[in-house]
């Protein structure tokens, strides 16, 4: 098994300018009863997206036809709370390839990276620029170049370098997963066990 290779993208973005978007909002607990990884996109942001009768709430960005694209932009402390990887699966399953915020919760960031979903952490100012650009033109394009570790607002040319460890970058670009890495060093792990007793 491996993850999908990450391709550089140029896409419009869906803005959710709210802070502390927790994983309970991304995918509520009552939808965690599945035993496979697929299909969670259907219930992404379920209670913000639909009313209790299941009708789409018109004012939620995912229901607004003017917003589209493979990039999701959230406010500070995105993905906080529960460790449920289902949150990363839901965002990816819906069709997003990149999540942008000025601050991610640790577990969410790891989960996203383990599923080929790229978390791009930008500065506070750059996040404001992104939200402003989308407000001015919902179709504005954002370019994310993983090789260069660069995010660019095409309309204004504003760009910023983003952090990712060389190891994770390599994994995403080549579609490697951590489990393969660990399986390859199983002997070393067994030796470590022996050295402790």
């Amino acid at each position: 098994m491996s993850i999908e290779k990450f391709q550089n993208i140029e896409s419009a973005a869906v803005p959710i300018p709210i802070e502390n978007v927790d994983t309970d909002q991304i995918i509520p607990a009552r939808f965690l009863k599945a035993t496979t990884r697929e299909g969670f996109g259907e219930n992404l942001f379920r209670d913000w997206r639909y009313d209790k009768s299941g009708n789409p709430k018109a004012d939620f960005p995912l229901n607004n036809p003017k917003f589209s694209g493979a990039i999701l932009v959230g406010g500070k402390n995105f993905g906080s709370g529960s460790s449920r990887e289902h949150a990363a699966w839901a965002i990816h399953d819906y069709g997003f390839k990149v999540v942008i915020s000025n601050f991610f919760a640790d577990i969410f960031k790891n989960n996203a990276l383990n599923n080929g979903l790229l978390p791009v952490q930008v500065s506070d100012n750059f996040l404001v620029s992104i939200f402003k650009a989308i407000e001015a033109d919902a179709g504005t394009l954002i370019k994310v170049d993983l090789e260069k570790q660069e995010i660019r607002l095409l309309a204004t040319g504003e760009s910023e370098f983003f952090q990712i460890t060389p190891y994770k970058k390599e994994c995403l670009l080549n579609g490697y997963d951590d489990i393969e890495y660990l399986l390859n060093i199983k002997e070393k792990i067994a030796q470590f066990e022996k050295s402790r007793t």
């Binding site: 289902h86 640790d106 383990n114 951590d178 489990i179 660990l182 066990e193």
Partner: peptide
């Protein structure tokens, strides 16, 4: 500490996880 399901799989498979030090 808490982990995601991919990491649960790592532990089941190798009793280890890959983790940056906080």
């Amino acid at each position: 500490f808490g982990i995601g399901t991919s990491e649960v799989e790592m532990v089941l498979a190798t009793q280890c996880i890959l983790q940056p030090k906080p």
